[in-house]
Amino acid sequence: MVETVYSAELPVNEHLLVQKNRICGHGNGPRMAVVTGIHGDELEGQYVAFELARRLNDDLDLLHGTVDIYPAINPLGINTIQRGVPTFDIDLNRTFPGDPAGNLTQVATAAVVDDILGADVCVDIHASNIFLREMPQVRINEITADSLLPLAPLLGVDLVWVHASATVLQNTLAYSLNERGTRCLVVETGVGMRITESYGKRLVDGLLRLLGSLGGWDGSVPDALRPTVARDQRVEFLNASEPGIFLPRVRHGSTLKRGQLVGVVCDPLTGTVREDVISEQGGLLFTLREYPVVYPGSLMARVLGGAR
């Protein structure tokens, strides 16, 4: 059943609607919340929302409990191909936990948090951005590692990255929920403005597997891949030193040798290569730049090396 989580009147004959699809099985099983579309340019979760709802509806008798699917926390952003909230120029994932007495975006995020609180688990699906392609991964703030690490491998991702805590991340949905006692896992997968169905299918299996582990799904799902858990390993960030056009020279997801060429930054005006992009440490190339234009500082790749 489609329900409205938040509604606000827009200036001309329209409402902004944040909606969810509540799919109920039988019995008093767990409640799982699946959230996506906080950033309007990240569409990988759209496929996951569709496919998850379709599979649940097809086999409703296998569902014990409730699945709430929130496909578009930033509906105006998805509708207009904008990462932030149109008009407000705000990154919604820096406004949580929101404020019921604040401005529209804060009221909306407060309503979303309020609606999800109490779920047995929440999964917030992101798709990097238009610049970077990511292998399916779960990102966990180190302060929540103990409670989330046992759940993350169930999602069928390639990588579980336990990262250092950062103050700015305290305004994300995941932080806000975890801080309030509702476990929330963040998935990053694929690339902005595109859908990678193969990743999405794996993630839907993963969500059903996760739900099954909580006693909410009786259907069969394939065994999960065993993800690499990056906790103590060194993640090498390759940022451009020169401006130009980035051309990758390796395949995303490959394992690099030390000193291997990842790509080049070229100058179309002069026909020259300005920079060879080298991975000094080697390892799993889990992030690779998709959008070719780079400035000094633009991230081109992330490589997971061995233990520190």
């Binding site: 990462r83 932030g84 120029d89 820096r94 951005n129 610049f131 700015v168 960030f237 940022n239 234009v293 400035y295 000094p296 500082g297 633009s298 991230l299």
Partner: peptide, 26 residues
């Protein structure tokens, strides 16, 4: 463009900055 035009990041949300980081951090 109100924010950094390529990626719409706000320079005033990247301090103290990082000389080896993303463009706006630099």
């Amino acid at each position: 463009s109100r924010f950094w035009a390529l990626d719409h990041t706000d320079i005033n949300r990247t301090f103290p900055g990082y000389d080896k980081g993303e463009t706006t951090q630099r």
